[in-house]
Amino acid sequence: MATDVRAVVATGKGKPVEVTTIRVPDPGPDEALVRIQACGVCHTDLHYHEGGISDDFPFLLGHEAAGVVEAVGPGASDLQAGDFVVLNWRAVCGVCRACKRGRLEYCFDTNNAAQPMTLTDGTELSPALGIGAFAEKTLVHAGQCTKVDASAAPDVVGLLGCGVMAGIGAAVNTGRAGPGDSVAVIGCGGVGSASVAGAAMAGARRVIAVDTDPKKLEWSRQFGATHTINAAEADTVEAIREVTDGYGADVVVEAVGRPETYEQAFYARDLAGTVVLVGVPTPEMRLELPFLDVFARGGALKSSWYGDCLPSRDFPMLVELYQQGRLPLEKFVTERIPLDGVGSAFDKMRRGDVLRSVVVL
């Protein structure tokens, strides 16, 4: 029997989001019904709303969520009703070529719920990143549920479901930042600030935050930045070199997703240093670099997908670090809002007024 719940839906490009009633099926094989307690407003949701990802409207928005399992279908043996979970969009399949090689963090065929959620008239919804969590309840694949410490605050740990994990993982998993390293982060919104936090948590000696917004630079200090650079007032590459004894950073995380800032990241790293792209470019963007410089500088140029995370490994560990006071996840939450506040949260995001608005149900 399906359940009717309130949810935030984007019905078309350029149209305001709506709080409306949707229909959520009972879980089938390997599926779970989750009562959502909190869900962060991520930039990816805004991209869906603006038609920047696909035109498969209507979209059920929201994906950065935590909640409680209400029911499971046959085969979901690792879950039971009452489990507290953070949702993820990397439910590894176990059988694709990446999984068979033991590289589960690159799974190329992650699982989603088989049954569609719908509007009350039967129109099928496209859930954001296969989750759709701006809703009182949502249906997901059981593998999208990662059990974590039930005493953790859902409005805080739910942020691990996307942006915070992407940023931390970009620095730690993809960039391999570690004790004694110098790490520069270009772009200090939610994902960039999480990269700063990840680098600090990993023991980096210097953590350099770069942005054009003084407010974001100030935010970065609370996540562990040891140096800040206002890119509107200084040459980013020269300023990073100055902080790093003239050499450049061991790891540079580019969290903007633009060719100009990527080029800065490329030249701001030390010889044999690593550039990590975690900012998301748009399809029309092109990058041009002198090919000889790519060869001569050595090192690694990497892209980070979801922070190269494995949710079953990383979520519980990061929640434990948060519980111990070693990872300030709570500082990402700028405001808590109801379901009908998502539209205004998008406006604040566009203006750069918030790190994260979090819908609390």
Rank of each mutant, 00 (worst) to 15 (best):
A7D: 04
V9N: 05
A10N: 05
A10M: 02
K13V: 14
P16M: 12
P16G: 09
T20N: 00
G28N: 07
E31Q: 12
A32Y: 00
R35C: 05
T44H: 02
L46K: 14
H47W: 14
G51A: 08
S54Y: 02
D56S: 13
L60V: 10
G62K: 02
A65M: 07
A66S: 13
S77P: 01
L79Q: 03
L87T: 08
N88G: 06
A91R: 07
R97T: 15
C107H: 04
F108N: 06
V140T: 08
G143C: 14
G143W: 07
Q144W: 07
P154L: 04
V156E: 06
C162G: 06
A170L: 09
T174D: 02
A177N: 07
G180A: 05
S182R: 03
V183H: 04
V185W: 01
I186V: 13
G192A: 12
A194I: 06
G203M: 12
A204N: 10
A204L: 04
T212W: 00
D213E: 10
K216G: 12
W219T: 13
E233M: 05
E233F: 05
D235A: 00
A239N: 01
V243M: 11
T244F: 11
G248Y: 01
G248M: 01
V251Y: 13
E254G: 12
A255S: 10
V256G: 01
G257E: 01
P259S: 00
A265I: 04
Y267C: 04
A268F: 10
R269I: 02
L271W: 12
V275Q: 02
V280A: 13
L289M: 11
L292K: 11
F295L: 14
R297M: 14
L301R: 08
S303D: 00
D308E: 09
D314I: 07
L321F: 05
P328R: 06
R336T: 13
D340V: 08
V342Q: 14
G343P: 04
F346R: 00
D347S: 08
K348L: 10
